[in-house]
């Protein structure tokens, strides 16, 4: 399904509007990312100036010649049709959330439910941003919600503007993939 044997694999960044998918890919891509951002008219949902309507694309080349392709989905539900297009063939998904958004837990459910069927079992990591801001939900609240739903996925507090934090999300996903593919359980 994913092309690891050929030395390539694909990771999808997803999550609601303004969670930081475009920012995360720009933080770690070695190429200037392909963006499909346009002026945002929906200032009620998010006040930022631009929003993704197609997908983001970035890339990391590994020392051994392997390539990690990074894709970002649009976040607004209107573009839901892009989720499965972008998610197809992904080795794993990273769901980004904004802990200060009132509906963040419901958003997590929405994106986790949409992407779990698109990736191999367990290949999902949740990154929660802005957890230290006033009125933000604690990352444990997100983890408890997943636990109550019987889903065991890492929930990490991150600031996707920092390269090291985005790398931690990718590294965590890589550890899960390695564990699942490296033994009799795979």
């Amino acid at each position: 399904m994913n092309d690891v044997a050929e030395g390539e694999f694909k990771i999808v960044f997803t999550g609601p509007m303004g969670a930081g998918k475009t920012t995360a890919i720009a933080a770690i891509s070695e190429i200037d990312p392909v963006r499909t951002e346009v002026a945002n008219n929906d200032r009620m949902s998010h006040e930022k100036a631009s929003t993704t309507v197609g997908f983001d694309y970035g890339r990391i080349t590994l020392p051994g010649g392997g390539v990690v392709r990074l894709y970002g989905t649009p976040g607004q539900p209107r573009f839901r049709f892009m989720w499965s297009i972008v998610g197809r063939g992904a080795a794993g998904a990273i769901v980004l959330l904004d802990a200060t958004q009132p509906g963040a837990l419901v958003q997590m459910d929405l994106f986790v439910d949409a992407f779990r069927p698109l990736v191999p079992e367990g290949a999902l990591v949740v990154g929660v941003g802005r957890t230290t801001e006033d009125g933000a939900l604690n990352s444990d609240t997100f983890a408890s919600r997943l636990e109550a739903r019987g889903i065991l996925a890492p929930v990490l507090s991150v600031d996707v503007r920092r390269k090291a934090d985005v790398m931690l999300l990718v590294q965590t996903l890589a550890c899960i993939l390695e564990t699942q593919n490296g033994n009799a359980y795979a």
Binding site: V34, R35, G54, F55, R78, M82
Partner: peptide
């Protein structure tokens, strides 16, 4: 029309890209 508007904007953006 609403769905065509959403998909159409993705295609426009991909066309630009």
């Amino acid at each position: 029309p609403a769905r065509i508007a959403a998909i159409g904007s993705s295609l426009s953006a991909l066309g630009s890209a």
